[in-house]
Computed example of a mutant assay.
Amino acid sequence: MIVRFLICSLFSVTFLSIKAQENFAAYANIKIEPTNKINFNETDIAVSYKKNLGTKYKIANTLEYSNLKVSYELNQFDFYQEQDKFNQIQNRFEFSHEISEKTKWQFSIIPTANFQQNLDLSDITVLGNIAINQQLSSKLNLVIGAGRTSIFGAPKFTPIAGLDYKFSDKANLRVGFPDSQIKYSNNERNEFKLTNSFNGNFYHLDTSDAVNKAVLSQITTAFEYDRNVSKNWFLNFKAGYDFNKKYKLADSSNRQIYDYNIGNGYVLGIGIKYKQ
């Protein structure tokens, strides 16, 4: 009981300070990622808010829960079929400071609990990053930093870099790591994006033997369409492909124990968002 109370306290979010309605949002997404051997189905929900602290400081907080279901289609994996449901509770707190008109820095701290069924303090990992945003011209912007992320399937320190170019009020481009995208909006209700991202995750298993982590990673290239269907409601549609997709089992030191060799596959997703 004490452990559950401490974990819930760590991920709790206080919304009493929300005064501006336009700073609140909530969303839900469903995503399927089938491969030749194993199918992945993920559902996530989140609530977030943003707040200005004066003219130069901003904070943002997002609390998110996701559930991943894994379907093993071939009998050769029967001995691992109990590993078919994974959960994640994550809280992202972000702070940014405008140092000058053209320079600002920002950091985030992200406690995350990744577990199979039984939630425990040992399932908690703290991620985060820090970055500098420098405006080079009216159309060009540079972002550089570093963070502790799970984009390769395990907590590791990775670089963050991005070069943003604004073609016009309707189109802009970002080239960088771990995310790149080109975005175009033909009017205030439609937004089209072509994205490429390195992404991954890990989950602690309910086991006491040498295998205690499930590890996933991939590079995703996708086309996304966002539609503002009314004043506060938005829909998102996503279709793409996962390259270099990996699903492995590892020990507590992140050493590989077993590789499913699942191969690549496509990704389809749909989401709904409410924003004030």
Rank of each mutant, 00 (worst) to 15 (best):
G271T: 09
P178N: 05
T55G: 10
L10T: 11
Y72W: 04
M1K: 15
S48M: 01
E82K: 14
Q88G: 06
T14L: 05
T207W: 11
N141W: 06
N196K: 04
N141T: 04
T125Y: 11
S150A: 07
K69P: 05
G128P: 00
N118F: 14
F77K: 00
K273Q: 11
P34T: 06
T220H: 11
V211W: 05
A26N: 03
A25Q: 09
N264F: 00
V47R: 00
Q21P: 06
Q135T: 14
E98Y: 11
L194F: 15
K231F: 08
K31M: 08
Y247H: 15
K51W: 07
P34R: 09
T35P: 09
L249G: 06
Y203A: 04
T221D: 06
I30E: 02
D120R: 15
I18M: 02
V175D: 01
Y57D: 04
G271K: 05
L163V: 08
N41K: 07
F11H: 07
F107S: 00
N190D: 05
T112W: 01
L173P: 01
E42H: 06
K156M: 06
E101V: 05
Y258T: 03
Y274E: 02
L119K: 12
Y65V: 07
S12W: 10
T55M: 05
F79I: 03
Y72I: 00
Y241S: 08
W105K: 02
E98L: 12
